[in-house]
Design a binder for these strands. Structure first.
Length: 354
DNA sequence: AAACACCCCAACCGCTATGCC
DNA sequence: AGGCATAGCGGTTGGGGTGTT
Protein backbone atom coordinates (compact mmCIF):
# COMPACT_ATOMS: atom_id res chain seq x y z
CA UNK A 1 0.00 0.00 0.00
CA UNK A 2 1.53 3.27 -1.09
CA UNK A 3 1.50 6.63 0.51
CA UNK A 4 -1.40 8.93 -0.24
CA UNK A 5 -0.44 11.58 -2.82
CA UNK A 6 0.14 15.08 -1.48
CA UNK A 7 -2.21 16.54 -4.09
CA UNK A 8 -4.63 15.56 -6.83
CA UNK A 9 -2.20 14.61 -9.57
CA UNK A 10 -4.87 14.77 -12.25
CA UNK A 11 -5.61 18.46 -11.69
CA UNK A 12 -2.05 19.55 -11.23
CA UNK A 13 0.15 21.10 -13.87
CA UNK A 14 3.63 19.74 -14.25
CA UNK A 15 6.71 20.82 -16.10
CA UNK A 16 8.35 24.20 -16.52
CA UNK A 17 6.84 27.23 -14.87
CA UNK A 18 5.48 30.05 -17.01
CA UNK A 19 6.31 33.70 -16.21
CA UNK A 20 2.66 34.21 -15.22
CA UNK A 21 2.82 31.42 -12.68
CA UNK A 22 6.08 32.79 -11.35
CA UNK A 23 4.58 36.24 -10.96
CA UNK A 24 1.53 34.93 -9.17
CA UNK A 25 3.56 32.91 -6.74
CA UNK A 26 6.18 35.55 -6.15
CA UNK A 27 3.82 38.45 -5.61
CA UNK A 28 1.62 36.43 -3.28
CA UNK A 29 4.49 35.26 -1.11
CA UNK A 30 6.04 38.71 -1.03
CA UNK A 31 2.75 40.16 0.19
CA UNK A 32 1.42 37.42 2.44
CA UNK A 33 4.28 35.07 3.11
CA UNK A 34 3.98 31.34 2.82
CA UNK A 35 1.39 31.16 5.54
CA UNK A 36 2.85 27.98 6.92
CA UNK A 37 1.11 25.75 4.45
CA UNK A 38 2.55 25.06 1.04
CA UNK A 39 -0.15 22.52 0.22
CA UNK A 40 -2.92 25.08 0.54
CA UNK A 41 -1.01 27.89 -1.15
CA UNK A 42 -1.62 27.01 -4.83
CA UNK A 43 -5.39 26.94 -4.30
CA UNK A 44 -5.30 30.31 -2.57
CA UNK A 45 -3.65 31.96 -5.54
CA UNK A 46 -5.33 29.94 -8.25
CA UNK A 47 -2.32 27.98 -9.38
CA UNK A 48 -2.79 24.49 -10.73
CA UNK A 49 0.39 23.35 -9.12
CA UNK A 50 1.33 20.95 -6.38
CA UNK A 51 2.30 22.63 -3.11
CA UNK A 52 5.63 20.90 -3.21
CA UNK A 53 6.22 22.25 -6.66
CA UNK A 54 5.44 25.79 -5.47
CA UNK A 55 7.79 25.43 -2.55
CA UNK A 56 10.59 24.19 -4.80
CA UNK A 57 10.03 26.93 -7.31
CA UNK A 58 10.16 29.58 -4.62
CA UNK A 59 13.18 28.18 -2.83
CA UNK A 60 15.22 27.38 -5.90
CA UNK A 61 14.32 30.18 -8.22
CA UNK A 62 11.99 32.95 -7.08
CA UNK A 63 13.36 33.61 -3.62
CA UNK A 64 15.31 36.88 -3.37
CA UNK A 65 19.13 36.91 -3.57
CA UNK A 66 19.38 33.61 -5.39
CA UNK A 67 22.60 33.18 -7.33
CA UNK A 68 22.79 30.93 -10.37
CA UNK A 69 25.94 29.59 -11.97
CA UNK A 70 29.36 31.21 -11.71
CA UNK A 71 30.61 29.26 -8.74
CA UNK A 72 33.79 30.79 -7.38
CA UNK A 73 36.97 28.99 -6.46
CA UNK A 74 36.19 29.59 -2.82
CA UNK A 75 32.76 28.06 -3.24
CA UNK A 76 34.29 25.07 -4.99
CA UNK A 77 36.59 24.54 -2.05
CA UNK A 78 33.82 24.88 0.47
CA UNK A 79 31.67 22.40 -1.39
CA UNK A 80 34.51 19.91 -1.66
CA UNK A 81 35.51 20.36 1.95
CA UNK A 82 32.03 19.90 3.25
CA UNK A 83 31.43 16.98 0.94
CA UNK A 84 34.44 15.30 2.51
CA UNK A 85 33.21 15.95 5.99
CA UNK A 86 29.46 15.48 5.74
CA UNK A 87 28.81 13.87 2.39
CA UNK A 88 25.85 14.70 0.21
CA UNK A 89 23.95 16.79 2.74
CA UNK A 90 23.29 19.43 0.14
CA UNK A 91 21.03 21.55 2.27
CA UNK A 92 23.74 21.91 4.90
CA UNK A 93 26.35 22.68 2.30
CA UNK A 94 23.99 25.22 0.77
CA UNK A 95 23.59 26.88 4.16
CA UNK A 96 27.29 27.78 4.01
CA UNK A 97 27.01 29.38 0.60
CA UNK A 98 24.86 32.51 0.63
CA UNK A 99 22.46 32.66 -2.28
CA UNK A 100 23.03 29.07 -3.29
CA UNK A 101 20.36 26.44 -3.16
CA UNK A 102 20.85 22.80 -2.36
CA UNK A 103 19.55 21.91 -5.80
CA UNK A 104 22.05 24.21 -7.45
CA UNK A 105 24.96 22.80 -5.50
CA UNK A 106 23.81 19.27 -6.10
CA UNK A 107 23.62 19.91 -9.84
CA UNK A 108 26.94 21.69 -9.85
CA UNK A 109 28.58 18.86 -8.01
CA UNK A 110 27.11 16.17 -10.22
CA UNK A 111 27.82 17.92 -13.49
CA UNK A 112 31.06 19.78 -12.89
CA UNK A 113 32.97 19.28 -9.67
CA UNK A 114 32.83 15.52 -9.71
CA UNK A 115 34.19 15.43 -13.25
CA UNK A 116 36.88 17.88 -12.35
CA UNK A 117 37.89 15.58 -9.55
CA UNK A 118 37.93 12.50 -11.76
CA UNK A 119 39.96 14.35 -14.36
CA UNK A 120 42.52 15.11 -11.69
CA UNK A 121 42.57 11.49 -10.62
CA UNK A 122 43.19 10.35 -14.18
CA UNK A 123 46.11 12.74 -14.49
CA UNK A 124 47.67 11.56 -11.27
CA UNK A 125 47.27 8.00 -12.41
CA UNK A 126 49.05 8.74 -15.67
CA UNK A 127 51.81 10.55 -13.83
CA UNK A 128 52.18 7.63 -11.44
CA UNK A 129 52.32 5.21 -14.33
CA UNK A 130 55.08 7.24 -15.90
CA UNK A 131 56.91 7.36 -12.60
CA UNK A 132 56.44 3.65 -12.09
CA UNK A 133 57.88 2.71 -15.48
CA UNK A 134 60.80 5.02 -14.87
CA UNK A 135 61.39 3.33 -11.54
CA UNK A 136 61.30 -0.10 -13.18
CA UNK A 137 63.82 1.05 -15.71
CA UNK A 138 66.13 2.27 -12.97
CA UNK A 139 65.69 -0.97 -11.05
CA UNK A 140 66.74 -2.92 -14.12
CA UNK A 141 69.84 -0.81 -14.52
CA UNK A 142 70.79 -0.99 -10.87
CA UNK A 143 70.26 -4.71 -10.63
CA UNK A 144 66.77 -4.69 -9.22
CA UNK A 145 65.44 -5.12 -5.69
CA UNK A 146 62.52 -6.44 -3.75
CA UNK A 147 59.25 -4.88 -4.80
CA UNK A 148 57.68 -6.11 -1.60
CA UNK A 149 59.70 -3.92 0.72
CA UNK A 150 59.43 -0.22 0.18
CA UNK A 151 62.69 1.60 -0.20
CA UNK A 152 63.38 3.47 3.00
CA UNK A 153 64.14 6.67 1.15
CA UNK A 154 60.78 6.30 -0.49
CA UNK A 155 58.96 5.43 2.62
CA UNK A 156 57.53 8.84 3.24
CA UNK A 157 54.81 10.53 1.39
CA UNK A 158 55.89 14.08 0.66
CA UNK A 159 52.40 15.41 1.13
CA UNK A 160 51.58 13.54 4.32
CA UNK A 161 54.79 12.90 6.25
CA UNK A 162 54.72 9.66 8.14
CA UNK A 163 52.32 8.05 5.73
CA UNK A 164 53.78 5.23 3.66
CA UNK A 165 53.61 6.12 -0.03
CA UNK A 166 51.65 3.00 -0.82
CA UNK A 167 48.77 4.34 1.17
CA UNK A 168 48.30 7.14 -1.26
CA UNK A 169 48.94 5.24 -4.43
CA UNK A 170 46.59 6.17 -7.25
CA UNK A 171 43.48 4.14 -7.53
CA UNK A 172 42.98 2.71 -10.99
CA UNK A 173 40.29 4.65 -12.65
CA UNK A 174 37.98 4.18 -15.54
CA UNK A 175 34.74 5.88 -16.41
CA UNK A 176 33.03 2.54 -16.25
CA UNK A 177 34.43 1.64 -12.88
CA UNK A 178 31.44 1.41 -10.56
CA UNK A 179 33.67 2.40 -7.69
CA UNK A 180 33.57 5.94 -8.91
CA UNK A 181 29.86 6.09 -9.19
CA UNK A 182 29.12 6.18 -5.50
CA UNK A 183 29.58 9.07 -3.14
CA UNK A 184 31.84 7.26 -0.75
CA UNK A 185 34.36 6.50 -3.46
CA UNK A 186 34.30 10.02 -4.78
CA UNK A 187 34.81 11.34 -1.29
CA UNK A 188 37.77 9.08 -0.71
CA UNK A 189 39.22 10.18 -3.97
CA UNK A 190 38.72 13.78 -3.00
CA UNK A 191 40.44 13.22 0.29
CA UNK A 192 43.30 11.48 -1.43
CA UNK A 193 43.75 14.40 -3.76
CA UNK A 194 43.71 16.80 -0.90
CA UNK A 195 41.00 18.78 -2.67
CA UNK A 196 43.38 19.96 -5.33
CA UNK A 197 42.17 20.33 -8.84
CA UNK A 198 42.34 22.94 -11.49
CA UNK A 199 40.53 23.95 -14.61
CA UNK A 200 43.11 22.04 -16.61
CA UNK A 201 41.86 18.89 -14.96
CA UNK A 202 38.36 19.40 -16.17
CA UNK A 203 37.89 16.87 -18.92
CA UNK A 204 35.08 18.71 -20.62
CA UNK A 205 34.87 22.40 -21.17
CA UNK A 206 31.73 24.02 -22.38
CA UNK A 207 33.12 27.45 -22.75
CA UNK A 208 30.18 29.21 -21.19
CA UNK A 209 30.55 32.53 -19.48
CA UNK A 210 29.97 30.87 -16.15
CA UNK A 211 33.24 29.02 -16.53
CA UNK A 212 35.31 32.16 -16.35
CA UNK A 213 35.72 31.94 -12.64
CA UNK A 214 38.00 28.97 -13.12
CA UNK A 215 40.50 31.00 -15.03
CA UNK A 216 42.35 32.07 -11.93
CA UNK A 217 42.05 28.81 -10.11
CA UNK A 218 44.91 28.42 -7.73
CA UNK A 219 46.52 25.17 -8.71
CA UNK A 220 48.88 25.35 -5.78
CA UNK A 221 46.16 25.03 -3.20
CA UNK A 222 46.81 22.02 -1.03
CA UNK A 223 45.13 19.63 1.31
CA UNK A 224 45.78 22.27 3.92
CA UNK A 225 42.96 24.33 2.48
CA UNK A 226 40.60 21.44 2.80
CA UNK A 227 41.87 20.74 6.25
CA UNK A 228 41.27 24.32 7.31
CA UNK A 229 37.87 24.54 5.74
CA UNK A 230 36.75 21.32 7.30
CA UNK A 231 38.15 22.06 10.69
CA UNK A 232 37.15 25.66 11.18
CA UNK A 233 33.63 24.81 12.26
CA UNK A 234 34.81 22.35 14.85
CA UNK A 235 36.42 25.07 16.86
CA UNK A 236 33.84 27.77 16.57
CA UNK A 237 30.22 27.84 15.65
CA UNK A 238 30.75 31.39 14.45
CA UNK A 239 32.80 30.05 11.62
CA UNK A 240 29.63 28.55 10.27
CA UNK A 241 28.18 31.55 8.55
CA UNK A 242 24.65 30.35 8.70
CA UNK A 243 22.39 32.04 6.24
CA UNK A 244 19.61 29.53 6.42
CA UNK A 245 16.94 28.96 8.99
CA UNK A 246 17.44 28.30 12.66
CA UNK A 247 16.59 24.70 11.95
CA UNK A 248 19.28 24.52 9.37
CA UNK A 249 21.70 26.01 11.83
CA UNK A 250 20.78 23.52 14.49
CA UNK A 251 21.10 20.71 12.02
CA UNK A 252 24.39 21.98 10.70
CA UNK A 253 25.64 22.46 14.22
CA UNK A 254 24.78 18.89 15.08
CA UNK A 255 26.88 17.72 12.17
CA UNK A 256 29.63 20.01 13.31
CA UNK A 257 29.43 18.45 16.74
CA UNK A 258 29.61 15.02 15.18
CA UNK A 259 32.57 16.15 13.15
CA UNK A 260 34.23 17.45 16.28
CA UNK A 261 33.75 14.10 17.93
CA UNK A 262 35.12 12.43 14.86
CA UNK A 263 38.09 14.73 15.09
CA UNK A 264 38.81 13.20 18.41
CA UNK A 265 38.33 9.71 17.18
CA UNK A 266 40.25 10.30 14.02
CA UNK A 267 42.87 12.09 16.03
CA UNK A 268 43.57 8.87 17.81
CA UNK A 269 43.67 7.00 14.54
CA UNK A 270 45.65 9.64 12.73
CA UNK A 271 48.72 8.61 14.62
CA UNK A 272 48.41 5.49 12.53
CA UNK A 273 52.04 5.18 11.53
CA UNK A 274 53.10 5.02 15.15
CA UNK A 275 50.29 3.08 16.73
CA UNK A 276 49.34 0.88 13.84
CA UNK A 277 52.63 -0.36 12.61
CA UNK A 278 52.50 -0.41 8.82
CA UNK A 279 54.28 -3.72 8.90
CA UNK A 280 51.41 -5.16 10.86
CA UNK A 281 48.96 -3.64 8.48
CA UNK A 282 50.78 -4.94 5.46
CA UNK A 283 51.48 -8.38 6.75
CA UNK A 284 48.29 -9.01 8.60
CA UNK A 285 45.29 -8.41 6.38
CA UNK A 286 43.05 -10.20 8.83
CA UNK A 287 44.04 -7.79 11.54
CA UNK A 288 43.24 -4.91 9.27
CA UNK A 289 39.93 -6.26 8.20
CA UNK A 290 37.33 -4.03 9.66
CA UNK A 291 39.76 -1.20 10.09
CA UNK A 292 39.79 -0.26 6.45
CA UNK A 293 36.99 2.13 7.18
CA UNK A 294 39.38 4.11 9.30
CA UNK A 295 41.97 4.35 6.60
CA UNK A 296 39.91 4.32 3.43
CA UNK A 297 39.17 1.30 1.36
CA UNK A 298 41.56 2.43 -1.32
CA UNK A 299 44.38 1.81 1.09
CA UNK A 300 43.40 -1.75 1.62
CA UNK A 301 42.57 -2.13 -2.04
CA UNK A 302 45.96 -1.01 -3.12
CA UNK A 303 48.04 -2.85 -0.68
CA UNK A 304 46.19 -6.01 0.08
CA UNK A 305 43.68 -6.15 -2.68
CA UNK A 306 40.90 -7.64 -0.63
CA UNK A 307 38.20 -5.71 1.05
CA UNK A 308 34.49 -5.52 1.11
CA UNK A 309 33.14 -2.53 -0.73
CA UNK A 310 29.83 -1.74 0.75
CA UNK A 311 29.99 1.78 -0.64
CA UNK A 312 26.88 2.74 1.24
CA UNK A 313 26.25 5.70 3.48
CA UNK A 314 25.68 3.44 6.44
CA UNK A 315 29.31 3.52 7.41
CA UNK A 316 29.66 7.05 6.24
CA UNK A 317 31.68 8.49 9.09
CA UNK A 318 33.94 5.54 9.18
CA UNK A 319 34.92 6.11 5.61
CA UNK A 320 36.46 9.44 6.33
CA UNK A 321 40.15 9.51 5.97
CA UNK A 322 42.18 10.26 9.06
CA UNK A 323 44.20 12.48 6.81
CA UNK A 324 41.50 15.04 6.99
CA UNK A 325 41.25 15.01 10.73
CA UNK A 326 44.38 15.66 12.68
CA UNK A 327 44.60 14.93 16.39
CA UNK A 328 42.51 16.94 18.77
CA UNK A 329 43.61 15.87 22.17
CA UNK A 330 41.38 17.92 24.41
CA UNK A 331 38.24 15.87 23.99
CA UNK A 332 39.82 12.51 23.71
CA UNK A 333 39.00 11.48 27.25
CA UNK A 334 35.36 12.30 26.80
CA UNK A 335 35.35 10.50 23.54
CA UNK A 336 36.73 7.42 25.16
CA UNK A 337 34.11 7.49 27.85
CA UNK A 338 31.14 8.65 25.90
CA UNK A 339 30.59 8.60 22.22
CA UNK A 340 32.83 5.74 21.41
CA UNK A 341 30.85 3.22 23.36
CA UNK A 342 27.67 4.35 21.74
CA UNK A 343 29.04 4.15 18.23
CA UNK A 344 28.59 0.90 16.46
CA UNK A 345 32.26 0.58 15.71
CA UNK A 346 32.55 -3.06 16.55
CA UNK A 347 35.92 -3.57 15.01
CA UNK A 348 37.28 -0.45 16.59
CA UNK A 349 36.23 -1.60 20.00
CA UNK A 350 37.86 -4.90 19.27
CA UNK A 351 41.13 -3.29 18.34
CA UNK A 352 41.04 -0.89 21.27
CA UNK A 353 40.43 -3.76 23.62
CA UNK A 354 43.37 -5.59 22.15
C1' DA B 1 22.63 21.64 -42.84
C1' DA B 2 21.14 17.67 -40.51
C1' DA B 3 21.64 14.11 -37.29
C1' DC B 4 23.48 12.64 -33.33
C1' DA B 5 25.67 12.90 -28.75
C1' DC B 6 26.40 15.02 -24.72
C1' DC B 7 25.68 18.29 -20.97
C1' DC B 8 23.15 21.10 -17.82
C1' DC B 9 19.60 22.18 -14.85
C1' DA B 10 14.71 22.71 -13.53
C1' DA B 11 11.49 19.92 -11.80
C1' DC B 12 9.68 15.68 -10.08
C1' DC B 13 9.48 11.64 -6.96
C1' DG B 14 9.66 9.14 -2.92
C1' DC B 15 11.34 8.91 1.48
C1' DT B 16 12.23 10.64 6.25
C1' DA B 17 11.71 14.15 9.80
C1' DT B 18 8.91 17.07 12.29
C1' DG B 19 4.97 19.12 14.35
C1' DC B 20 0.33 19.02 15.67
C1' DC B 21 -3.87 16.97 17.35
C1' DA C 1 1.65 7.53 22.61
C1' DG C 2 0.15 7.13 18.11
C1' DG C 3 -1.54 8.71 13.80
C1' DC C 4 -1.81 12.04 10.36
C1' DA C 5 -0.41 16.05 7.54
C1' DT C 6 3.11 18.81 6.02
C1' DA C 7 7.92 20.24 5.37
C1' DG C 8 12.24 19.16 3.88
C1' DC C 9 15.70 16.46 1.74
C1' DG C 10 18.42 13.84 -1.65
C1' DG C 11 18.24 11.06 -5.83
C1' DT C 12 16.67 10.89 -10.39
C1' DT C 13 14.71 12.28 -14.77
C1' DG C 14 13.54 14.66 -18.99
C1' DG C 15 13.85 18.36 -22.08
C1' DG C 16 16.26 22.11 -24.04
C1' DG C 17 20.64 23.82 -25.42
C1' DT C 18 25.13 23.22 -27.33
C1' DG C 19 28.88 20.84 -29.47
C1' DT C 20 30.47 17.37 -32.76
C1' DT C 21 30.47 14.56 -36.78
Amino acid sequence: MGRAPCCDKANVKKGPWSPEEDNKLKSYIEQHGIGGNWIALPQKIGLKRCGKSCRLRWLNYLRPNIKHGGFSEEEDNIICSLYISIGSRWSIIAAQLPGRTDNDIKNYWNTRLKKKLLGKQRKEQQAARRGSSLKQEMMKRSGGGSSMVPNSSNNQNPQWPGMPPTLLAPIPYSNQDPRFNDHASIRKLLIKLGGRFSEADLPIHHGTSTDNHFANYNTTSTGQQIYQAVNIPTSSADAFNITGSATQFAQAQSYVDEAAELNVLQGKISSFPAELDPEIVYNNPQGLYGLEFLCGEGIVDNRIGTTGTSGTESNFWGEMSPLVYPPVASNYGGMQQGTLQECDFGELRYHRAN
